[in-house]
Design a protein around this nucleic acid. Structure first.
Length: 270
DNA sequence: CGCTACCTGGGT
DNA sequence: ACCCAGGTAGCG
């Protein structure tokens, strides 16, 4: 559920509603949801700090706090954040609660329980989360065909697999990789290093278009305030096996590439 | 690089 | 009563 459009939507909402606010305290309801430091340290260190900004790097949400600490949150598969008034009933899926000023709480929710938070000075956080190893951001203005070409060069793994590797390119999840390859007309099983320059050009445009559209529609899940995003029914092929390709009418195929479910049109993706 | 574990709710 | 899930770390 949480690919870049969903994460970016949450980050924009955090900038609108949480940046500038004070965190009065935190309650770690599920200790495994904090990667570091220990949960009691996490609660103690965060109290009284102001949220100075909210940014995204790949699918990490990053919040610099006053006093030289950075909070990182990763939604993994199903995690999300919710901002709500204090006293609202916390669902069983609540992993962490941050108590904010003005009587509000920020919840980290995840029924699957994989979502994680971490807290440290920015340099230590970047080192321990290996943020400097991430590839270029797909939505950066300076990400273009030349960059993608160099990142894909000589890689023999399927293009689908390589696009999901955040160290190659930061920004695609399983759904958006499939949708991008469909838009670009590229068979997901092809070797990444074997794409022609014209195909890489198409793919670059497709990736940006898919992510831009997802963000414009505010993702497929509920936002920070609980409002449902509108991208849910805007899929061309993902999870649509057996139905007609919107471009040519051919039945959409489903297979596994690596361990990941993959959907593609055998006629328009070559 | 490719595989597995992580965990719970919903789909088949 | 089984699967299986849009992500990642960690292993060999």
């Amino acid at each position: 559920m949480a690919e870049v459009p969903e994460v970016e939507t949450l980050v924009r909402d955090l900038r609108a509603a949480v940046v500038g606010r004070r965190i009065d305290g935190a309650q770690v309801l599920r200790p495994e949801a904090v990667r570091f430091p220990a949960p009691d340290e996490f609660e103690r260190l965060i109290a009284g700090r102001i949220v100075e900004n909210a940014t995204r790097r790949a699918k990490h949400m990053l919040m610099p706090l006053s006093g030289g600490l950075m909070l990182a949150v990763h939604c993994m598969l199903w995690g999300t954040l919710r901002l709500i008034e204090r006293g609202a009933a916390r669902p069983a899926a609540t992993l962490i609660v941050w108590m904010l000023d003005r009587g509000e709480e920020l919840w980290l929710l995840d029924t699957l329980g994989y979502a994680r938070a971490a807290l440290a000075p920015p340099e230590e956080l970047a080192r321990r989360l290996d943020l400097d190893s991430l590839g270029p951001e797909a939505l950066d203005a300076d990400f273009g065909p030349a960059v993608l070409m160099s990142r894909l060069a000589r890689r023999r793994a399927p293009i689908k697999t390589v696009l999901l590797n955040q160290k190659v390119l930061a920004g695609l999840g399983n759904r958006d990789a499939d949708e991008s390859l469909w838009l670009a007309g590229i068979d997901p099983r092809r070797a990444a290093g074997g794409l022609a320059p014209a195909e890489i050009e198409e793919l670059t445009q497709a990736i940006k278009a898919v992510l831009d559209e997802g963000i414009r529609l505010r993702g497929t899940q509920r936002d920070l305030f609980g409002v449902q995003g509108k991208a849910r029914h805007r899929r061309n092929i993902f999870e649509r096996a057996g139905r007609p390709c919107p471009r040519c009418g051919t039945r959409i195929q489903h297979t596994r590439i690596g361990t990941r479910n993959t959907y593609w049109c055998p006629r328009c993706q070559r």
